[in-house]
Design a protein around this nucleic acid. Structure first.
Lengths: 358, 358
DNA sequence: CCTGGCACTCCCCGCGCCCGACTGCTAGAG
DNA sequence: CTCTAGCAGTCGGGCGCGGGGAGTGCCAGG
């Protein structure tokens, strides 16, 4: 669909904006009379009818059936979001709740992510999703192998994001506490100040060989580093699915189930949101932390044809970008949700940068 | 309600069992003709009608309305579960899937708990819940304070269940690596072999005082031990809420929302399941690992009047008991779910005992 | 270009109706 | 005494129908 929509004159734009606004609030198709009664447009309903008919011809509105009011189309919402809506800022109340949340938030990335989704779903009344910045880009801080018993040990890797991996290992051969300490020291001096991404298995093997650490221990170190880099599955959290029950568009059980399935499968959810991260280079590279809205079919998933998603990247220090998202019905209060998501993303980024382990 | 139900003669028992069985499978009220057609009872539908009328008088069946078939009452399900149903054992397929799941399961308690709920919800097609054994009863294994930078440190507490707590701390005053090592050693030698429950703040303070560890560090140690004992909130996981959407009894949105609210609030969920742990002394003390079924109003929660819960305790080594539960409609396949829950609980217990850190 | 008016369309809702499923009862048979 | 066949009674659910209402499109006139 090319962008050859005829430019909207001022009155059409106002009418479109009002229809979208009204529909978002009432969830009922909007008629010409409602419009003239609730908003003083200075013209009669007949005129509005003509305008609405043209807006429908232009693809901005659709009629569920002949004798009903109009409902915005994807293009209608799109125009509203891009050009007609006035941006909102956080209400004092919301700002306060966000501030309170992060005042004494955890230092652990994964916990923060989870708490943030709960906060955002509560504030927005929709489904909130967060993905953590890829751990590849975090700075290595410390690794410690801890002797627990002759046959068991604990390995902990700490990065700038907190404890990135921790795991108990059981070894067939007996292991001495000194061996573990020596290996810990060797690893720390070798990897200090590096970025997780650069630390590969080969180098780990080399360090282990230097201190004559055996096969089982080497495997353990490799494993815990792999988890710390988390190359396998990305960290993602979602909360507030039950909020969707309140929206009339999800009273249809099939739609509801389709959405729940998407949320259940973290992989799909990740792909949905991460599109934005990879999609245009501006996010990964530049300073673009602007919120982004995708509406209905723009999401390229049939199950989500009646949904919209607001995504906002957040910065984590000077490396790595994570993503916050709100998923809800297309008929969502875009202005408020964008403000909420942006505000939360900013606070989250500040918090993470602030507590980043130096 | 006292247990003064008249004893059921053989034919009544068979009819009740068949009604429950049929209703569980079809979700439709069961009529006398259906019964005679699908099961060869050797008598006519008129006779069945008389019997069913008596079963209704006895409180085992109810009629949704005059001209409908019968549906089991709480008491009907209860009798079915206690005396009429034949116990099922795991199918080969289920047994295999459980075995596979635990073959390479995590060593970390919290992760195992979560994986188990996913397994059990997948197998049962219902909502699965697991609570971890109280951490109080775990054996203390190791604590390590790790120096990360002059102002930051990491504290890790390991118990017989794996890493019980880990946290990064930020201190205003500078801290030396040696101080942390000395304190770690002191704590380990003092607490080695003890049970978490016994380790109180006073004793921690005493050890800190011995090695002249300052206020900030003492607070950190206290905090990490508190988390490790997890006196504040019990560890609980739930999965598979979207399975409930498939059940016709939850097509009513109000009921669905009521249930989702319960699942969302972990506290309520915990109380629901933990009743069983505290309820009768046999579980906590003895060797009782039998599954337990609570049906409808027995759950003492109006929202759950149409639900049943199967709970099974699982043993964790020789100390502590956790709980596995399946929540679903009253009309659930009790035999299969009991087998699944028991089988999973056994495997879970074995796995935990097996990987317990010695 | 705007407006009032009017005919038209179509959904929604309530009503009444019938159909079907099931019961309870009774009379009679074994 | 128990079982059965038959029959009348009951009630819910589905269906069709019709009216009311909301909204549109169009036209003629200002």
């Amino acid at each position: 669909m090319v962008n050859d929509k005829p430019e909207l004159d001022k009155r059409k734009a106002f009418i479109l904006a009002t229809v979208v606004y009204e529909y978002i609030n009432t969830a009922e198709p909007v008629g010409s009379v409602t419009l003239t009664q609730k908003y003083n447009l200075g013209v009669s309903s007949a005129t509005i009818r003509n305008e609405m008919a043209e807006l429908e011809a232009g693809g901005y509105l659709v009629q569920p059936h002949t004798s009903a009011g109009r409902v915005p189309s994807d293009a209608g919402y799109r125009t509203y979001v891009d050009r007609l809506m006035q941006p909102e800022s956080l209400t004092n109340d919301d700002a306060r709740r966000i501030r309170d949340q992060f005042r004494d938030a955890s230092l652990e990335l994964s916990e923060v992510i989870e708490q943030t989704t709960r906060l955002l779903s509560g504030l927005s009344g929709n489904l909130a999703i967060a993905i953590a910045p890829s751990r590849d880009t975090h700075a290595f801080k410390h690794v410690q192998l801890i002797w627990l018993s002759p046959n068991t040990g604990l390995a902990v890797v700490v990065t700038s994001a907190g404890v990135a991996a921790q795991r108990v290992f059981e070894w067939r051969a007996e292991v001495g506490a000194d061996d573990l300490t020596r290996l810990s020291n060797a690893l720390n001096s070798r990897f200090g100040g590096r970025v997780m991404e650069e630390i590969g298995s080969a180098e780990i093997d080399a360090v282990c060989a230097d201190v004559q650490a055996g096969g089982e221990i080497r495997d353990a170190v490799r494993a815990v580093f792999a988890t710390a880099r988390q190359t396998d599955e990305p960290e993602i959290a979602a909360a507030g699915a039950q909020n969707l029950l309140d929206q009339p568009e999800f009273h249809d059980l099939r739609k509801l189930r389709a959405i729940l399935r998407i949320v259940e499968e973290q992989r799909t959810l990740y792909d949905l949101i991460a599109d934005e991260l990879a999609g245009d280079g501006t996010v990964a590279g530049g300073a673009d932390t602007a919120p982004h809205v995708r509406i209905g079919h723009e999401l390229r998933a049939d199950e989500l044809a009646e949904c919209s998603v607001v995504t906002v990247p957040y910065r984590f220090g000077d490396r790595g970008v994570g993503m916050l998202a709100i998923l809800g019905p297309r008929r969502m209060p875009y202005g408020r949700l964008i403000a909420l998501a942006s505000g939360t993303a900013r606070s989250l980024g500040d918090h993470l940068t602030d507590v980043e382990i130096r």
